[in-house]
């Protein structure tokens, strides 16, 4: 069946948390200019988990940056709450990133001079919805969820690669975003921890009504998602 997101929802389903229409993205300059994304349409609904799969270099990360409002498409639009944010002001996009989106980079980026808990608190402190002790409690709970309950006060640069990745996942969940975009969140993890993290993300989607979209090379994990989006050369394919 056709796996573009349009076909996944029945007519009476709730409004999508994010909708992308006709995304095009060229990268590079002049001769080296590459058509990385060639017209992608996508609707992401609450309570659903999506897996993006495809060979290396097919444009998965590029797509995620567009959806995460970290980059702007050359053509097409991205709607959040019926607002076209791909053409929005930097302020509007920044606000949306803060309140609606959680992002996990492929190469798990933390601020090295901050502890694990402080890293998780950074988005909460920016959003400013919780008090100090509530933020601290939530950060510690999230770190427990990813199996790092005993390392909350470790500085990020004293954590292993897999531990850092899990902190980054905990951080992406901090503000209870409507949509979590994770670029190979289990790339550095062993079997046990990948399952732990993956189950956590699934649970977030199914129990809390958030949507998750993860890029993964792990077919087994992808199969557990509600929907698989296969990509090749900048297009969704069967």
């Amino acid at each position: 069946m056709n796996r573009t997101a349009d076909h996944t929802a029945a007519g009476d389903s709730p409004a999508p948390v994010l909708e992308a229409r006709g995304l095009h993205r060229w990268l590079g300059e002049a001769e080296g200019r590459v058509h990385v994304l060639c017209g992608l349409d996508l609707k992401l609904y609450p309570e659903k988990s999506y897996a993006v799969v495809g060979p290396s270099g097919c444009g998965k990360s590029t797509l995620l940056y567009l959806l995460g409002l970290l980059d702007r498409p050359d053509e097409g639009a991205i709607f959040v709450d019926e607002t076209n944010l791909s053409a929005g002001t930097d302020e509007a996009r920044t606000r949306a990133r803060s309140a609606y989106l959680g992002f996990v980079f492929q190469f798990h980026f933390l601020l090295p001079e901050f502890t694990a808990a402080e890293n998780v608190m950074l988005p909460m402190r920016k959003l400013g919805r919780l008090g100090d002790s509530e933020m601290r409690d939530r950060a510690e709970a999230l770190l427990r969820d990813v199996g790092l309950g005993d390392k909350t006060h470790r500085f990020a640069n004293h954590l292993s690669g897999g531990e850092q990745q899990r902190v980054a996942i905990a951080r992406s969940l901090a503000n209870k975003p409507r949509l979590i975009l994770a670029d190979e969140p289990t790339g550095n993890l062993d079997m046990r921890n990948s399952t732990l993290v993956f189950d956590l993300l699934q649970q977030v989607a199914h129990d809390k009504g958030q949507a998750i979209l993860i890029v993964t090379h792990n077919r087994e994990l992808a199969d557990q998602c509600d929907e698989i989006l296969s990509m090749r050369d900048g297009r969704f394919v069967e």
């Binding site: 995460g68 970290l70 930097d90 302020e91 920044t94 606000r95 990133r97 803060s98 309140a99 992002f103 980079f105 980026f109 933390l110 601020l111 950074l122 988005p123 920016k126 959003l127 951080r171 503000n175």
Partner: peptide
């Protein structure tokens, strides 16, 4: 630069 990108991805504005 990386940290700046992370901060921006978490909702820190240009002004921040």
């Amino acid at each position: 630069q990386r940290e700046i990108a992370i901060l921006r991805s978490m909702g820190y504005s240009r002004r921040d």
